[in-house]
Amino acid sequence: MYRLILPLIFFLLGAGFLISTFNLPKARLGDPYGPIYFPAILGVLLVVLSIIYFIEEWKQRGDKFPELELLLKGRTPFLLISTLVISLIYAFLFERVGFLISTIFFLGGLLFLINGRKKWMTNIIVAVSFSVITWYSFAVLLKVSLP
């Protein structure tokens, strides 16, 4: 039955999008509904597609849903969530403490997470050297304005 979740999500997305298009401001010049037609058509399209998709999935509702199991197996969910958390912290720190320091911690954190604690030496060397090299080539050679 998990199969049916996805078409339902698409249905809600399409319906929600369609409703929000009605709240769009109207154009002050030309056709007032000009900016609304296209998104509204897309909303309807997604709703229709989600219904077809639902019917397709309904036919195989008894089948296994191996994709979901794959995702929940082993430490995959843990890795995913921690990556998201570390990335968000990175986004928060990026302009506050500067590129170099935040990147070293971000990369270091990811490496410890994925590559494991046992290889701490490699992790640190890679994190520091890679951050410095990218910082040098972007900020100094290419003159990108990095914080």
């Binding site: 320091i101 070293i104 701490w120």
Partner: peptide, 17 residues
């Protein structure tokens, strides 16, 4: 030891910066 190295390296970089 790992932690110390880590702190050492980062503080060096901060100072350099």
């Amino acid at each position: 030891k790992k932690l110390l190295t880590y702190i050492g390296l980062s503080s060096l970089l901060i100072l350099g910066g």
